[in-house]
Design a binder for these strands. Structure first.
Lengths: 360, 360
DNA sequence: CACAGGCGTTGAAACGTTAAAATTAACCCC
DNA sequence: GGGGTTAATTTTAACGTTTCAACGCCTGTG
């Protein structure tokens, strides 16, 4: 029960392997008799022939200078729960929704998607080389040594949600996170809130959280409100961090002084953890604290109260990222930043402050 | 800037390619001078040699009878939103959590995981053949023609959450869904509820929903409650279906007759959609309707009220599935069903009925 | 000292595919 | 009918790896 190879098809159709290859790959530089073509296609069909991608990949390294596997890699951040368990962060629905859109689009274009985390001490570049990945899509942070390798080897690369100079010269997709931050914080300010917590994952200069933070400050400035560093609650990305921030906010409000009446969380999952934490402490949303999130994952609309958030069309973002990847793979298009529009989605987690705060 | 191959390493170390191969693969049937080994390892390191998986795969087809790619496939159901967009169903956190556990465990064992949907008219078997996947993990439903092919070609296969005779003779993992259904419905009955809606995705004899349904009926029988077919709300899996069920339940309750006071949803996302839908219609959970879910995704504990649910340890399930896959790949272990324990997690979405219902 | 046997290493072949070069067949033109 | 095109197909070689069989060398043994 050996696997059927191109030679079997060739024998069955009474023709050479090359001819079969030409026909099955629709080679344009070669003419084939319609009758031969039919015979070969029929033979392939009858034998249930499926070409070996491994052989194609190996063979391709000769001609293109670099092997082509018809597979791209998508690098997703890993959780940092513990040293041993480094799961890829699919727990955040933002990533899973993005990924399924990318997978679909790439599949339509004839590519498979390899999703894998990286083991400690092993660079993703090794995976790219070993599996002959045709391209790499990187979401969020990345080690800049890796990216220099991609540049050096001229590997089609699409950066998603990356900031910073290391990414210059690559295709990239993102939303206008600074504007988004301003939109979110501006909405809260517009509703009369003045003491607004900023809840986010790690704030790094090359990451989205920093840009959203800048937007938050932009909005404060716009409204003439002084920035207060004690209102920044940064940590990791996840429900848990939102819950921790809730504890801190509740404590701060018990401590006297002007109360924190609103919070801007830079991810919906943090916002949801926050709302849950607040409700566990007897604080109502939006009664006591208004909450606004970022992303608009499916869940955001399901929560009670519905989460007001800054919507980025995640599926669209995935589609665009895949489109850029395909351009990059085909050597078409020019590197540069593509910005996905975003908009405020008002639900029920933000209320207008009437006491003390004045409408603007 | 050609890729560095084993020959380059061989030349650098002043030794043959064969020797390099033996050393890098720790071939036990062959002895190598420690000094040669050191020289080769050093050369490989210096040249940053990364073996070509494509070449390994191709070469391996000669000896093992079947090519080995050090990659397995995980088949995840696709959404059926529309004909064109068949995204893999990572939107359900159950799948994403499961997947990230599987990915991690397989990676530790030296395997990559290919996650891909299947295009219409193309069988997944073609992907397995073309990419020389070493094994296949199938979640939920599957076309039985495919599975017969896996059997015929002796492809290591692990079934997850599959029932039905087609899966006999394979490694499989699941929870005791019938018991789980009984646990869930039994809990509601124990809390005094008698008219209990059953909300689930498609009910097929070879799927988990059917088993959970049987468990639901078991519990009814145990409590001497007659089954009422009008309380079954089946559809697809997703938030949306939960919301639709909410509308139906609200309508039924408005229609007079004995009110539906509780619902058992066979997935947490349906339960959440249901709770949201009920709350939108002014029905409180658990005040008017108690809700119990199934899975215990991260979200379940975040919702307000916290969702009472039947917990299956999703990460553990992924780990076990990966372990079985590794056994299957190594020809170890014996096919059979592995059952993951599960337990009721009580939160706040179920209340004890005092009026009318009596405690048991 | 001849020789068996083990050790360390190597050359050749094979895996399935495709690009480039070569071959054959058919046709046309003077 | 020979030379020249073009069309259709085949032969050859190569991609990077591993396995198998074979080789030369050393050592101990009879």
């Amino acid at each position: 029960m050996r696997k059927v190879s191109i030679k079997d098809v060739a024998r069955e159709a009474g023709v050479s392997a090359t001819t079969v290859s030409y026909i099955l790959n629709d080679n344009r530089n070669v003419t084939i008799t319609p009758e031969t073509r039919a015979r070969v296609l029929d033979a392939a069909d009858r034998l249930k022939y499926v070409p070996s991608q491994a052989a194609k990949t190996l063979g391709s390294s000769r001609v293109m200078g670099r092997a082509r596997s018809k597979m791209i890699g998508v690098v997703i951040p890993q959780t940092e729960d513990s040293a041993e368990n480094e799961y890829i962060m699919l727990s955040n629905p933002f990533y899973s929704a993005f990924l399924s859109a990318v997978e679909f689009e790439m599949r339509q274009a004839g590519y498979h998607v390899l999703v894998t985390g990286t083991n400690r001490g092993q660079s993703y570049v090794d995976v790219v080389k070993s599996r002959a990945l045709d391209g790499v899509m990187i979401i969020g942070m990345y080690p800049s040594e890796d990216i220099e390798e991609y540049r050096r080897f001229n590997i089609p690369t699409v950066l998603v949600d990356c900031y910073g100079s290391a990414g210059e010269g690559f295709f990239s997709v993102r939303t206008d996170d600074r504007l988004g931050g301003r939109l979110a914080a501006g909405h809260l300010l517009g509703m009369g809130h003045r003491r607004i917590a900023f809840v986010s994952g790690e704030i790094r200069e090359d990451g989205v959280n920093y840009m959203r933070f800048l937007g938050y400050r932009d909005a404060l400035e716009e409204y003439g409100v002084d920035f207060d560093g004690s209102l920044v609650f940064d940590g990791y990305v996840g429900f848990g961090h939102g819950a921790e921030a809730a504890a801190d906010i509740a404590a701060a409000n018990r401590g006297g002084g002007r109360a924190i009446t609103a919070a801007f969380a830079t991810s919906d999952i943090a916002a949801i953890g926050l709302m849950k934490g607040l409700s566990e402490r007897g604080l109502s949303v939006p009664g006591d604290v208004s909450v606004i999130g970022f992303d608009d994952i499916d869940y955001a609309g399901m929560y009670v109260p519905g989460l007001t958030t800054v919507r980025q069309n995640i599926v669209e973002k995935g589609r665009v990222a895949a489109g850029l990847m395909i351009d990059a793979l085909n050597g078409r298009g020019a590197p540069g930043e593509t910005v996905i529009p975003m908009q405020l989605v008002e639900r029920d987690s933000v209320r207008r402050l009437t006491e003390g705060g004045e409408d603007i």
